[in-house]
Design a protein around this nucleic acid. Structure first.
Length: 691
DNA sequence: AGCACGCCGACT
DNA sequence: GTCGGCGTGCTC
């Protein structure tokens, strides 16, 4: 190719799909540029970042004008074909534009830099580590851990021999069974082979402790974290180190699944069942599912770790597509706590004006722990003092003026706060409707429970951990440190305390009021409750010395519910079998593929009108065969910040059929929008968590 | 999604 | 007179 011939390039830029510029765009440049090269290109009156992309086999007809690439940032090595195919797949599967997704998952800072600034940042990076230093002594593995690692090794070898990808491996073990040690050993052999390991965790909160564990085990190795809590400069630095292949260990939250890793050798998804792996805005991807896809495509092993796997994962184990590696023993001989169900319906009624937070037997058990100097953890999944205020005279309730939700009473700062839109006011002295002074809190949140405990257990040191008490950097770590230091006797918390934090001295865990999830309209609520309770129970009895005395208390009005029966036996398999039978009968995931079309508008009628028109358009398509479209319905909280939301469910036994319909249908919705004034936005959620 | 243009209402 | 509300149209 002559230097004088302008090369036509396909460039991915951040433009929304379903618009005239929603696909790859054509630009020209004096010479060929490899796919994956970062560029700046003119678009209208702006100059925008873009990535040179693979030229499609059937490029769209050449537009009238093709402009020139403005700047080539070739100090950055091109994003490789594996990365590009991950983005291609994710964009197609989650129905987003390639450019939109590709640019959105790059570190934001990278898009802002020009060639000079980028070169400077690259120059300041540390060099790759020298030869690996001697590893520190490692704990001996128990038989199950050894078996898991051998199974991993065997799967990798037999897959390589057969020229296929290794099957995903489910590391199935309760809290304290030593999953992390298996990750460390698996990472060790990958590092020894000169390759990179990617470790995903559900929440930022969990990165520091895992990072510390990896750093201690691999001194001298380059380890970076990737999550939204980093400063823009840190995030770019860490991303660049991974992209250049200098970082050998990359640890992060869901966004790290898109890290560029030229020598990827292992993927770990810890707590793979956790809903945080699903992105809830923009491109609504599942980092766990993409991690599995990426590992499969690159033919590297993927380890999914959980005590309570997602039912999707468990079903694949049943089908033989994933392999299960069981870890049933707790390290150090700890045992799972004994489960005690308290039948709230059989308790004597509290006296008039009395209110019972805790059953007498549970209170007695807490007293015992106190006397022995042991710690207890009370779980209540509701922050604030009371979920709603109520006027006894006129039945006014503390609704949010902007949302279809109650404002929560926070006693500490005397406010009414909407947990959906953030609208906050000082709590009124009297009923705003009728002036009655007797307005009362209804129900109970963590703040009130902590207050009641202080009265019920005089002298006990009560701690509270929830989103309110841990706002601000380092607050959670600070609160956790106080618990570890033994400065707290009874800890009250929301689900955030159940996740991953290792409390050695807790011998009693109690779920104060878990019943709501049993009868929720959300079909995944039981699965989440079971996982939460198993995880919370795992907080107790990690020390063998205390394991015999450790207990998990459940206060419930439905003690005969099968979920609790399975929990009492710590029998995940029985619970999963029962849930899967229900899902199969109801045609729900993993036996059906779902997608949700959401619409936001000023009025519910507008949102519903758009969805109905969209449904009519879909019904006319041949691709609609085999896909069920349900009528538009409001989500559980229909109005948020004065925006009315509606949603429409699509369901099909075939994932491919659903994908074909979405691909054929969604482009037409852009045009449909014009006929619905007042429609603010629409979006599709493939594999939604809640419907 | 930006970012322009353009056409109406109200304020220094 | 202009400042600014957001409807409409365009971007390789």
């Amino acid at each position: 190719v002559s230097d004088l011939t302008p090369e036509l390039l396909s460039v991915a830029v951040e433009t929304p799909r379903h618009t005239a510029v929603g696909t790859l765009l054509d630009y020209h440049h004096g010479q060929r540029l490899p796919a994956g090269t970062l560029v700046q290109v003119p678009l209208g009156r702006r100059e925008v970042p873009g990535l040179v992309w693979d030229r499609p086999a059937d490029p769209a007809p050449r537009p009238a004008t093709v402009r020139a690439v403005a700047q080539v940032l070739d100090a950055l090595p091109p994003l490789d074909a594996d990365w590009r195919s991950l983005v291609d797949f994710a964009a197609a599967y989650y129905q987003r534009g390639v450019g939109e997704l590709a640019l959105a998952v790059l570190p934001p800072e990278l898009r802002r830099l020009d060639a000079t600034q980028l070169a400077r940042r690259l120059g300041r990076l540390p060099a790759a580590a020298d030869a690996a230093p001697a590893a520190p002594p490692r704990p001996l593995l128990n038989e199950e851990q050894q078996a898991a690692l051998q199974a991993l090794q065997a799967e990798v070898e037999s897959a390589a021999a057969a020229g296929r990808a290794p099957a995903p491996l489910l590391l199935h073990g309760v809290t304290g069974s030593g999953k992390t040690e298996v990750y460390l050993h698996a990472a060790e052999s990958v590092l020894a082979a000169g390759r990179q390991a990617l470790v995903l965790v559900p929440e930022i909160n969990l990165t520091p402790q895992l990072e510390a564990r990896f750093a201690a085990r691999f001194p001298g190795r380059v380890l970076v974290s990737l999550h939204s809590g980093l400063t823009p400069a840190q995030r770019l630095r860490h991303w660049l180190l991974a992209h250049l292949g200098r970082a050998e260990l990359v640890l992060g939250t869901r966004l790290a699944v898109f890290a560029s890793l030229p020598r990827l050798g292992l993927v770990v998804v810890d707590e793979e069942h956790d809903p945080s792996f699903k992105q809830q805005e923009g491109a609504r991807y599942s980092a766990r599912d993409l991690a599995v896809w990426r590992a499969h495509r690159q033919r590297v092993p993927v380890l999914l770790g959980s005590a309570t796997p997602a039912l999707e994962t468990w079903q694949r184990v049943q089908e033989g597509r994933y392999r299960r590696l069981p870890l049933e023993q707790r390290i150090g001989g700890g045992a799972m706590p004994r489960v005690r169900l308290v039948d709230m319906g059989r308790l004597p009624r509290p006296g008039p004006g009395q209110e019972r937070a805790l059953a007498p037997a549970l209170l007695a058990a807490l007293h015992e722990r106190l006397a022995r100097g042991e710690q207890s953890l009370l779980l209540l999944n509701r922050r604030g003092y009371a979920p709603v205020l109520h006027c006894g005279a006129c039945s006014w309730k503390s609704g949010c003026p902007h949302c279809s939700a109650w404002r929560v009473f926070h006693k500490g700062d005397r406010t009414l706060r909407c947990h959906h839109c953030g609208f906050t006011e000082r709590v009124p002295r009297a009923c705003p409707e009728c002036g009655n002074l007797d307005i009362a809190p209804v129900g109970r949140g963590t703040e009130k429970l902590a207050e009641q405990l202080a009265q019920l257990l005089p002298g006990a040191r009560i701690g509270r951990i929830d989103a309110d008490t841990t706002r601000g950097v380092g607050r959670l770590a600070q609160e956790l440190a106080a618990v570890h230091a033994g400065e707290v006797d009874v800890l009250v918390g929301t689900q955030m305390v159940a996740k991953g934090h290792d409390f050695r001295r807790i011998t009693l865990v109690a779920a104060v009021n878990p019943d709501a999830a049993l009868f929720s309209s959300d079909f995944r609520a039981p699965e989440r409750l079971f996982a939460l309770l198993m995880q919370a129970g795992g907080r107790a009895g990690r020390d063998a010395a205390q394991a015999a005395a450790s207990e998990m208390w459940i206060q419930t009005w439905h003690p005969q519910h099968p979920l609790f029966a399975a929990l009492a036996r710590h029998d995940y398999a029985a619970f999963a079998a029962q849930q899967l039978a229900e899902r199969r009968a109801a045609g729900m995931p993993p036996f059906a593929a779902l997608a949700l079309l959401r619409a936001d508008a000023r009025t519910p009628e507008t949102a519903a009108g758009f969805l109905q028109a969209a449904q009519d358009a879909a019904a006319a398509l041949p691709e609609a065969a085999g896909v069920t479209l349900y009528p538009p319905v409001p989500p559980p909280v229909a109005r948020v910040a004065d925006v009315e939301r509606m949603q429409m469910l699509l369901e099909s036994p075939s994932r491919a059929a659903l994908q074909r319909l979405l691909t054929a249908w969604l482009p037409s919705l852009h045009a449909l929008r014009a006929g619905h004034k007042g429609l603010l936005r629409w979006a599709v959620d493939v594999d939604p968590l809640a419907i």
